[in-house]
Write a protein that binds this DNA or RNA. Structure first.
Lengths: 225, 225
DNA sequence: AGTTTTTTCAAACAAACGTTTTAATCAATA
DNA sequence: TATTGATTAAAACGTTTGTTTGAAAAAACT
């Protein structure tokens, strides 16, 4: 199988691309165990065997889908982080700038097209709730490195704060981010109509603000233990 | 089937109780679709048919398990909320008091016994990520009422704040709470050993503090939209 | 054009799923 | 002790699961 930009391979990739998109949609909605090869094939208007032909197995298919969705976001994060570092004359970045670079790319990707809005938010949230083994591996593969980057950046910006407190509150910030994404779909029901569910960026903006102040107030507070 | 406190019914309930506990453990670990009747029966050292005998179906069994775990927590929440209302001479409660009554009961239940620690945290988080229909119903049944209670309490404590902002930031606070619970198990890996994973109450305390300040700073901030 | 490679498809595979059936076991009362 | 009702157990039910097969179709290349 040759992968290039000829017209033929483009056409070859359409079913593959449809399968990936169907996988993303169904994985976000039903999780790994709730996703079946038949449901993916039906959603993608393709044959069941085609899915196994292109990816080899269910595991590999879902993993490939996750890789394609997550990596651009992580690249954008580091891009924004470096942008903030360069455009800043001060020694260290503000907490807001750091969390902005972490969270904003998610908003960009969610808002990129209407179809994937709720899908991507749920999808990313699921990668942290699904306990399946390959997802844990994927988690270590894709997120452990970036988590370390952000820990170091925060530690640099908050000298004198015990590393344990940095860890705790970065953990809380990331948890808030993922929780908010996972719950985004439910916001409309929850408020009984008081919030429009498709307002992505206002939510993202409030989320960044929320975790920034939770983090800053948290690490400066004297806890009993 | 007679349910009372005779010795016989006690013995009758042991397998039923073992099934409920196994259901909780496996549901927390693998979600609804990842939980199988056979795995529950095996974990509970019981027969597959016994599960269907006691509960009728997989749906009913999981639902009953959730009911037994969630309701005590909600009762405790309202208890703490009323306690704060009575012991307080001021007109309205502080944001901290409100979120304390919302979150602290979770910590109590999680810390109640070592076995259910991670289990309960994940379990509750799953009830908000699993999209299965009966869980959504259960969500409306168990949580919509208490969500409304907390919205009204927060609105009462923050006069002049648009109800939309109250909704947004209560949503963020609840999302943070659930996200933190869902991620609690992963904290140890995440920090590569810098945080002891079994410190429940320190995390809970920081979580309450985190969402309190995120909420208060959030609703008082002027957002573009 | 003919040939080769890549991709699709319907059908079938064994395994695992939730559930039901039927009989055996248990505890308790008469 | 005999009998009754509640509980457990083994086996089988019909579906659905992920995966494989082998032939047909499509595309690419010489």
């Amino acid at each position: 199988m040759i992968i290039n930009e000829t017209q033929t391979t483009k056409h070859k990739q359409t079913t593959r691309k449809r399968l990936i998109e169907a996988t993303a949609r169904l994985f976000a909605q039903h999780g790994y165990n709730g996703l079946t090869m038949r449901s993916v094939a039906e959603e993608a208007r393709a044959n069941i065997a085609a899915a196994n032909y292109h990816f080899g197995s269910k595991d590999a298919m879902v993993l490939e889908m996750l890789r394609e969705r997550v990596q651009p976001i992580n690249h954008r994060r580091l891009e924004l982080l470096n942008q903030a570092r360069n455009h800043n004359s001060v020694k260290h970045l503000s907490t807001y700038e750091i969390f902005h670079s972490l969270i904003f790319p998610l908003g960009e990707e969610i808002a990129k097209n209407a179809k994937s809005r709720c899908s991507l938010a749920q999808l990313i949230a699921r990668t942290f709730t699904e306990p399946v083994q390959f997802i844990e591996k994927m988690h270590h593969q894709f997120f452990s490195q970036i988590a370390d980057t952000y820990y170091r950046e925060l530690a640099l910006s908050h000298p004198g704060i015990p590393s344990k407190e940095i860890y705790w509150h970065l953990h809380l910030a990331v948890s808030s981010m993922l929780g908010a994404l996972a719950q985004h779909r439910r916001l409309y029901d929850f408020t009984q109509g008081n919030c429009e569910e498709n307002e992505v960026f206002p939510l993202i903006e409030r989320l960044i603000h929320f975790v920034t102040h939770g983090f800053e107030q948290g690490i400066n507070h004297k806890f009993d233990q």
